[in-house]
């Protein structure tokens, strides 16, 4: 899977399941947690999605607001361990 594919999958997931608004114009470096778009519950959900979709296990200490705040950060974290 390419980085572009990972990015699009994550973007779709965030819009559909987390922000619940497909029309929202989400940018790559926008603070999703700090901007109040998603809450702490969603961090755990990102962990589940990354495991199911990319078979990447992000350990709990990495599932934090600071480390998952933007689409760019999420993509980078997934790409790091993507096989």
């Amino acid at each position: 899977m390419t980085e572009t594919e990972v990015r699009e999958k994550l973007r779709q997931f965030i819009l559909t399941d987390l922000i619940k608004d497909l029309k929202y114009a989400l940018t790559d470096d926008e603070g999703i947690v700090s901007g109040g778009l998603i809450d702490s519950f969603s961090l755990a959900e990102i962990g589940v999605f990354a495991e199911q979709e990319f078979n990447v296990y992000i350990p709990d200490p990495d599932l934090t607001k600071a480390k998952m705040n933007t689409l760019n950060l999420m993509v980078a974290r997934v790409m790091r361990d993507l096989k």
């Binding site: 519950f41 755990a44 959900e45 962990g47 589940v48 495991e51 296990y57």
Partner: peptide, 10 residues
Amino acid sequence: NHLARRVRVR
């Protein structure tokens, strides 16, 4: 729901 849906199998 949170536990059922957001705890990873592993």
